[in-house]
Design a binder for these strands. Sequence first.
RNA 1: GUGAGCGUAGCCUAGCGGUUAAGGCACCAGGUUGUGGCCCUGGAGAUCGAGGGUUCGAAUCCCUUCGCUCACCCCA
Length: 424
Amino acid sequence: MPRQTRYRSVRGAEDILPDAQPRWRSVRDTMVSVCERYSYGQIDTPIFEDYNLFVRGVGEVTDIVEKEMYLIPDRSGGDTLALRPEATAAVCRAYLQHGLHARPQPVRLYTVMAPMFRYSRPQSGRLRQFHQLNVEAIGDPDATVDAEILGLCWQVFVELGLKDLTLQLNSIGDPACRPAYVQALKSYYGEHVESLCRDCTARLDRAPLRLLDCKNAPCQPFIEDAPRSRDHLCPDCESHFADLVGFLEGMGVPFDLDHRLVRGLDYYTRTVFEVQTMAEGAQNALGGGGRYDGLIQEIGGNPTPGVGFAMGIERIILNLERQSIHPPDTPTPTVFVAYVGEKARQRAVVLSAELVRSGVTNMLGPASKSLKAQLRQAGSMGVPHVAIIGEREAESGTVTLRNMSEGTQEEVGMGEVAGRVEGR
RNA sequence: GUGAGCGUAGCCUAGCGGUUAAGGCACCAGGUUGUGGCCCUGGAGAUCGAGGGUUCGAAUCCCUUCGCUCACCCCA
């Protein structure tokens, strides 16, 4: 046998085999169900976009833009394309492109199972192609919308059955108050530069907010005493946040205020939140998002507020498995069509097709295998009925219908099979 | 991009310098001439990730490389 190159899926990109599909489907169904009950409408956008959309939208100095995008030269010589690294910018683009501002605001949108692409070293809970649920409410600045989004997000986790989750909440202000806060943060940290970890000395200039996020030991004491964004909110942001907190309490959505929570995408304003597991493992953020009141203007629209979040399907599935929350069983055929001999072979294909037409899930047995082997296969799959067509049945136009659990069988006409198996 | 661990049949694992690389699961075929689940027998399937080196001799030791995994970073 000549040995050929064995291809495998590209690093960080996984196949989802039939056995895994019930799990994916049930997660998806739960997400759709919650979104639809909140009156969100499904939107699907292309998996690639002009890469400038993400540069503008996500922010030039973010990791996503600097080193994680998959770029594709456009064969027509136009602008470079990017496999989407996240959904929000693309959904906002669609909002603008289709004049959705002309509809009642906010416009409520979601995408499920949307594949996203980010180039980074794969590890548990982090792939290069991964899938998200994305939910966005665009066009209304009110805190009720933030509350709705947070409530929707939390409800999805509740209905998925995941336990040991926390909802971390913070406000990082807006253009009116954030610059002053960032300044305060910088000058505070400026006094401690020499004590900080190497990562953080670099962060001080490039992404000061992320200093708060550092996990290294040397920096911990400074984080506690660092200026907090919520203490520097302008009156508008302050009352917006107070409203949100009140709404969440009223809704019974549990949350923790976390002054360290900042997010890695530039577009967030005011509300930011993250749903985290307490489970072991590094990738503990199952979902996250916030308000992005400046984003639409940034990508060329009129100033338009928005809030939304994303959650990672793979990470959710990982945690469902860790918590032994099982998906529905893989469906098995109702009937296995076994046959022996040439004439029977012809009848069998026909029977299989007719059963499908009658709505009966069935599997056609393999040719050139003994009856014994076919029965064995049906048995190992747990198929409840086997329709056997041998020489005899082929002659008389009948089939022997075997009940696998009882071990009984009866001879019926070809057309009777569907009725027999359903009637039980 | 950085660091660590690991690579033996589809999956899990034994072997850790010496004759044809062992076992389990799964797969295939038999055990009555057209009948499953248990049991029994047999079979197929591995150039031991790849390349190079050391040695009389390497899956076993060394180097390189590729791949996988986990963590950092970042985030879903």
